[in-house]
């Protein structure tokens, strides 16, 4: 008998199937494919339409080069970038300050159930809408400018950071908490000596990530009136200054990359 002899055929009369077909899944997949075809016919997504679009795009890209670096434009760029940076930093700081108590309150292993549910409700509300929609609301409420941008990104930061803070507290080990309670330590002492050492490195990571993401989003909220480089970008589009648009886009890319490097370094520092 060779080494590669087939496995002996089962002696049982009914063979057991190890991988039964999943018919509901197969039917679901087929329905999805049919719907995709149907939806694209409704929305007039046709090949000639796409080719026409490509032609427009080509002209648009052509008008972008070379990027505009006239001194007056650079001044606009500098002012806009500075404002965006300020919006991002302010929103991150304010978001963190609100998120710390809110995150602790939402952790069901530390806070009483009614408080935890109330905190969770606030967090869910903060997370419901995209920052751009929140920014539109704030622009209507407090008017155009950086304040609306800061408020919108603060809401987004609170939703993000406090949710992750709450989750990481719920995932921590309760053993040291129990031990410190047993020594007669007060609740705050337990938080400082048993909870914070376990979760602080992760908090730093969340905050660094949020700073990074606020930097990206601050360009976005500007487009709907929240101030910063987004406003400059939107104006440039409306004036058909496509070469200046390119300058702005390139600068934002560089800034976001720098932000990513800084947040990565922060996370590494506190591991």
């Amino acid at each position: 008998m060779s080494e590669f002899a087939p496995a002996p055929t089962p002696t049982r009369t009914t063979r057991r199937d190890a991988f039964p077909p999943n018919w509901p899944f197969r039917i679901g997949l087929l329905l999805l494919a049919l719907y995709v075809v149907y939806a694209s016919s409704i929305l007039d997504l046709t090949w000639p339409r796409f080719l026409l679009g490509l032609e427009h795009g080509q002209r648009f890209l052509g008008r972008m080069f070379p990027p505009n670096v006239a001194p007056d434009k650079l001044k606009l760029l500098y002012d806009g970038m500075l404002e965006s940076l300020q919006i991002a930093i302010l929103a991150s700081v304010a978001g963190t300050l609100i998120s710390l108590p809110l995150g602790f309150a939402s952790a069901r292993n530390l806070s009483p159930a009614p408080l935890a549910w109330a905190a969770r409700l606030i967090i869910v509300i903060c997370r419901t809408f995209h920052p751009v929609i929140v920014a539109i609301l704030f622009v209507k409420a407090v008017g155009f400018g950086a304040l609306a941008g800061v408020l919108a990104l603060t809401v987004a930061s609170v939703g993000f950071i406090s949710k992750l803070i709450g989750e990481s507290i719920e995932e921590m080990s309760m053993k040291p908490v129990e031990a410190l309670r047993a020594t007669g330590a007060s609740f705050l002492s337990v938080v400082v000596m048993a909870v914070m050492p376990q979760v602080l490195p992760r908090f730093i990571g969340f905050i660094a990530y949020e700073l990074d993401s606020n930097l990206r989003n601050s360009a976005l909220v500007g487009i709907v009136g929240g101030g910063g480089i987004g406003a400059t970008l939107f104006t440039a589009f409306q004036r058909f200054d496509y070469d200046f648009v390119l300058t702005i886009v390139l600068t934002v890319i560089v800034l976001v990359m720098i932000g990513e490097i800084i947040s990565g370094a922060m996370r590494k520092l506190f591991q």
């Binding site: 053993k175 040291p176 129990e178 031990a179 410190l180 376990q198 490195p201």
Partner: peptide, 9 residues
């Protein structure tokens, strides 16, 4: 405690 329950960090 059985599992020492120290604050590891």
């Amino acid at each position: 405690f059985q599992e020492y329950n120290l604050v590891e960090r």
